[in-house]
Design a protein around this nucleic acid. Structure first.
Lengths: 343, 343
DNA sequence: TCAAAATTCCAAAGCGCTTTGGATTTGCTC
DNA sequence: GAGCAAATCCAAAGCGCTTTGGAATTTTGA
C-alpha cells in the first residue's frame, strides 16, 4: 500500500492524505480522522526512503563502533548503551544504523555515511584522548554527539560523560578514609579518555594524601576478567602488596576477586576492592547488598540521554553544542573494609 | 555532490555515469575509468535513499532485539554477533538497522519495517521454543534468518544454530567418563530454544548412564554472574551435593566458581565445571591453557555466516531456505578432573 | 445579500537515482 | 565508400513521498 493507492481509496488527493497524516493544519478534523483510520486498517506507513528523499532528512542516526586491531573487542558497555539510545530513537521515529568497522576504515565510513546521506547525525563511541574523529566530523559537517569526551580538543562539541575523574577520586578518598595507604589501580587502556581521567582521579587522591604513585600498583589494559586476575595476582605477589584495589570494570573486578581468593585472602577484609559499575544488565552487582563497593552510573541511561541530545541538536542546528556531566554514585558493598593492621 | 552535478562536471549524461559506476557493459573502459576517477576525487557516492527508491531495494538488514519485561537484559552475546554480521554487510554494501524494543511491540516493529520498506530482510535473535515471529514473518513476506532455531515450527525457514544438544550431551558424557555421577545443570531460561536443547543433551547423557535427573540439580534462569553463584551455592549445600556442574554461560560460570571457592573447595578437583563459551571478546577463557573446560563456538563467526545466508536468500528468493548447524568443540581446561572419591 | 476571509482541497514539481527505448557514432566488411 | 552491426551515449519516465501555489468551497461580517 502506498500513498497513491491510499488516497485513491479515500477519494482524496495525495496532498491531502499526506497532510492529514503529518499533522498539517489545513485539513479538517473529520477528513483527518478518516485518513488516519484508513491508514491503520490498510497498514500503511510512508516509505522511509521516499520520505527521506522528499524531505532531505534521513530519519536515521549512525553508530559507528570501531573495532581496533589493538583491542579486538566489542566493548560490552555498548549493548546497554544502544538499548538506551534505541528507546529514544523509536520514540522519535528515528532509525538506528550500526556500522562496526576496523578503525583504520573509520574515516571512510563517516565519509560514506555523509555522502550517501544515510544518516542525519552520528554518535561517537569510545573517544580517545586526542580523538581524530571530532575534527573530522566537524569538517564533514555531520552532526554528532560523543559518549565520553576527548581531553585534547579545541572546538566545542556535544558530549555526555560520566565524571570519571571525580568518581575515582572520591572512591580512592573513601579507601584512604578506611585507612588504606597502598592502593592499586586496575584500569582500562589509558589512551581511552575515560581511563585517563580515572587515573587522574586516582593519582589526585593519592597526592592529596601524601602518597607517591607507585608504577607497580598501576595497571592498564583491556578490561577482561583475565586482565583483572593477572593484574591483581602480580600486585598481591609484591612484598609490599596493596591492601586495596581500584578497578575500572566489573568484569575485571571478578578477576581481581579471583586472584584475592586464590591467595587465600578475603575480599573486603584482607584486600578491599572498589570497581566502577556500568550497571550492565547481565552483571548485576549482587542482590540486596551489592557485592562490590562501586562507583555506579547507568550506561543505558546515558544512551537515552545522549541520543536525545543529538536529536535536539539536529532539530536545532543553531544552538551551541550541549554537554552533560553525570556524577557517579558510590554504593558501598561488601568488598571494602578497614585496612588490615600491619603485623 | 550528486549524480547530476557529477555528470555535468564530466560532460556526460546521468545515464552514462550511473552505468559506469554500476558496472554495466554498455560503457567504454576509458569513460568508465574517467568516471570512477571523478567520483573518487569529488567524493561522490549515490544517495542510499534515492538508489533504494529507484531500485526498490532497501540495501539494509534489520536486527530486532527484543527486550523482554521478563528478562530486562541485553543478551551479551549480541554485541559479538552483530560485529560478525556487520563485517558481512559492509563487505556487501548493506546497512544494518537496529531496533531494540520491548517485546510486546515486536509485532508492530516488523510490520513497520515491512510497510516502511526500510529493510530487505531481518535477522531474528533469541528464538523461543514456539516462536511467534516465524509465522509472522512468513505472513508478512519479509525475508528472514534465525540465529538459533525454534523447536516447534512446521514451515521451513533459514537458520543457523550451534548444536546445543550435542554439545551438552558430549560434555556431560565427558564428565561421566571422569567418574562423576552427580552432575548439576545451571542453564539459561528454558523457554529459550537453545537452553531447552542444552537441557535435552544433558538429560540424554544422564539417562544413557542410568542416572535419573534430579530437579534439585537443575537450575534455569537469566545467565548473570549472580545467578551462577546462587545456583551453585544451593546445590553445594545439599547433603548429596554434585561433584560436577554444567553451565550455560561463562558469566554464570564465574559465579559458579565463586560459590565453589567460597566453600573452600577447589574447582577442577572437588567440583568440576564445564561451561559453554561463546568466545565473547571481553571474556577470554584464560591464556594458554583455558581456565574452564568448555564447549566452544564463536558467536561472531555465527554472525558472519548467518548474515551471508540471509543476503544469499534475498538475492535468490526461489531457493529453499538454507540451514546450518555448527558443532561446538570441547576444549579441556583446568576446571575438570576425576570425580573425587567418596569418603 | 454579497464580497472578503477562511477553510479545504488539488495538480504538479521536485528530491536523486535507475532504466527503458532510442539516437548517434564508430568500426568493419565487401 | 556504402551498408550494417557494435559500441557508446542520451532524454525522459518513474520510484513514493512532500510541498508550493492555487482553485474551489464554505463561513463570516456588515
Amino acid at each position: 500500500m502506498n500513498l497513491k493507492e491510499l488516497s485513491q481509496n479515500l477519494g482524496l488527493s495525495q496532498t491531502t492524505v499526506s497532510r492529514a497524516l503529518n499533522g498539517y493544519p489545513e485539513v479538517s478534523t473529520a477528513t483527518r480522522r478518516r485518513v488516519e483510520e484508513a491508514a491503520r486498517t490498510f497498514n500503511y506507513s510512508p516509505s522511509t526512503r521516499a520520505k527521506g528523499l522528499a524531505t532531505g532528512k534521513a530519519l536515521a542516526i549512525g553508530h559507528v563502533i570501531p573495532l581496533s586491531s589493538k583491542h579486538e573487542m566489542v566493548n560490552p558497555v555498548f549493548g546497554d548503551f544502544i538499548a538506551g539510545a534505541g528507546e529514544t530513537y523509536s520514540r522519535n521515529g528515528y532509525e538506528m544504523i550500526l556500522s562496526i568497522v576496523p578503525d583504520e576504515d573509520e574515516r571512510r565510513i563517516y565519509q560514506g555515511l555523509k555522502s550517501r546521506r544515510a544518516v542525519d547525525g552520528v554518535i561517537v563511541h569510545g573517544p580517545v584522548m586526542d580523538d581524530p574523529r571530532i575534527p573530522l566530523l566537524h569538517k564533514l559537517g555531520l552532526p554528532f554527539a560523543v559518549h565520553g569526551r576527548a581531553s585534547v580538543n579545541e572546538t566545542p562539541y556535544a558530549w555526555l560523560d560520566m565524571n570519571n575523574r571525580n568518581a575515582f577520586k572520591r572512591a580512592t578518598d573513601f579507601l584512604f578514609d578506611l585507612g588504606h595507604r597502598r592502593i592499586g589501580l586496575v584500569n582500562g587502556l589509558e589512551f581511552m579518555d575515560f581511563a585517563h581521567r580515572r587515573r587522574n582521579g586516582y593519582t589526585a587522591s593519592l597526592s592529596d594524601h601524601g602518597v607517591t604513585p607507585d608504577p607497580a600498583l598501576m595497571r592498564s589494559g583491556e578490561m577482561t576478567e583475565d586482565f583483572g586476575y593477572v593484574s591483581a595476582r602480580q600486585m598481591l605477589a609484591l612484598d609490599d602488596a596493596p591492601t586495596a584495589i581500584m578497578c575500572s570494570s566489573m568484569i575485571s573486578a571478578l578477576g581481581v576477586r579471583r586472584a584475592i581468593e586464590e591467595k587465600g585472602l578475603v575480599m573486603g577484609k584482607d584486600v578491599s576492592v572498589i570497581s566502577h559499575d556500568d550497571v550492565l544488565s547481565y552483571l548485576k552487582n549482587g542482590g540486596d547488598t551489592p557485592i562490590f563497593t562501586a562507583t555506579r552510573s547507568s550506561v543505558r541511561e546515558a544512551g537515552r540521554q545522549l541520543a536525545q541530545m543529538l536529536l535536539d541538536a539536529i532539530e536545532n542546528p543553531a544552538r551551541p553544542p550541549q554537554t552533560k556531566l553525570l556524577e557517579a554514585e558510590l554504593v558501598v558493598g561488601c568488598s571494602t573494609g578497614p585496612a588490615p593492621r600491619k603485623d
